[in-house]
Simulated assay, not measured.
Amino acid sequence: MTKSKLNQIGILIAFSIVLSSCKLGRFVFYNFADIKDYKIFPSRTLVSNQTKFEFYATDEGKYPKTLKFSNNIEPVTFDKVLEDNKTVAFLIIKNDTIQYEKYFKGYDKESIIPSFSMAKSVTSILIGCAIDDGLIKSVDEPITNYIPELKKNGFETVTLKHLLQMTSGLDFNESYFNPFGEAASFYYGRNLKREVSKLKLKRKPGEKFEYASGNTQLLGSVLQSVLKDKTITQYFQEKLWTPLEMEYDASWSIDKKKEGTEKTFCCINARARDFAKIGRLYLNKGNWNGKQIISQKWVEESTKVDTTEGSDEGYQYQWWLPSNTGEYMAEGILGQFIYVNPAKNIVIVRMGKNYGDINWSDLFSLLAKYPDK
């Protein structure tokens, strides 16, 4: 091999190392959020409980065997609809019984799947736990009580409720296609504390709903400040993962290996059945088999319709409200869902490689109408 060729190879290797070590490099290499992203980030481990809660299961659950769409001449099978729309896991749980459970694309019940923004709903639950524990006084407190360094950025009038409602007025580029935007910096970057310290406001809080992951990362900063030396993952383990008797180990992605910060706006990596238990907890108003894990008041406040102070009727405390009928859901960027319908006593989990070409909330509402066996 010639010296010139060796030099070229050396340059390519050096360039690859530089790319892999910086946010822009990781953006260029990985390009966009992917269902396997949990493998590229460091993380903290959640440990399954020795006593494991398992849903009952039936092979005779009543769900639609076929579905008819306006652009199809013939009905198509339910399984095919799910698979064609990039689903990897789908569970229908009614009356604590798994009525339907299917996996696609090489996935099974033991496959790890990232939550993406479903983690926002979990972060909200942990804020509620911190209020129950007296670590946080009220959602009406200014966040500068807990993150005083943001006073210099004008955050004195931003409350925890503004963050929960996505009405803080945060100046935040949510696009993952822009490598220089805040969302990409938060997702691929390795210093979340620094990124949070640079956040600014573009309008007064309480004027308008605008979805921005920075709100949830700020909630994470508040949470970390009150937990002192305990990590958010450890608090999650203590307050939810162990009490909910999760079947499998899981993890929460962090920005860097040493003294890393949890990506509270995304990135809990778990199995579909364990995600379903988050839905079951809220379905039962915070009660788990007789033990109140989180206050019923917090669950109700988190899932009610509220249009005051710029709030959106379809969003409350990091949960999506697809209608005004009492149903609500956690949602992630690739079509990850925990759907809860208390009136029908149903939880649906859908995990996917992407959204596909379907309105999932409409499908969930349709499925909720079917009786259980």
Rank of each mutant, 00 (worst) to 15 (best):
K228V: 11
R350S: 07
Y339S: 02
E210Y: 07
P371N: 05
Y100K: 04
Y56F: 12
S221G: 09
A368S: 15
Y328L: 01
L223K: 03
W241M: 07
N7Y: 08
K353R: 15
I338T: 11
P114H: 03
E74I: 07
K105D: 12
M1G: 15
Q217E: 12
L367T: 02
I293F: 10
V47Q: 15
T51Q: 08
L160C: 05
K369C: 05
L150M: 15
T308S: 12
P148I: 05
T97H: 10
N287C: 15
P342I: 01
L334V: 14
I348F: 12
K228C: 05
N324E: 08
K102N: 10
A276D: 08
S197D: 15
Y176T: 08
G286E: 06
V340F: 00
V222S: 11
D108T: 03
L46M: 03
I113F: 10
E74F: 14
V88A: 01
L163R: 01
S70Q: 11
G206H: 06
D140Y: 11
Q99A: 06
T307L: 06
L223M: 05
G214W: 09
G314Q: 08
I147E: 02
G220M: 01
S70R: 11
I92H: 05
D357M: 07
R271T: 14
M329P: 00
E262Q: 12
K152G: 06
Y30V: 00
T308R: 11
K23G: 02
E309F: 14
G279N: 15
K102C: 00
D357Y: 09
G290H: 14
C266N: 15
T58H: 04
Y339P: 01
D306G: 01
S197T: 09
Q296A: 15
E331F: 09
F27T: 02
N354R: 12
Q292A: 13
V305Q: 06
V28I: 14
N153Q: 13
S124G: 04
A57G: 11
K297R: 14
M166A: 05
E259T: 04
S4H: 06
S197Q: 07
D133I: 06
A276C: 11
P114Q: 03
S213E: 04
S16V: 02
K3F: 12
E331D: 08
P371G: 04
Q165S: 12
K137I: 07
L366H: 12
I232F: 12
E110Y: 10
G181K: 02
I232C: 09
V122G: 02
N289K: 12
S302C: 01
S302R: 00
F275E: 09
I294M: 13
K258C: 02
S175H: 04
D312K: 07
G128C: 05
Y38I: 08
E331Y: 10
T303K: 02
A212L: 00
V158R: 04
I293A: 10
I35M: 07
L6V: 15
V81D: 00
I9N: 04
G206V: 11
V196L: 14
T157S: 13
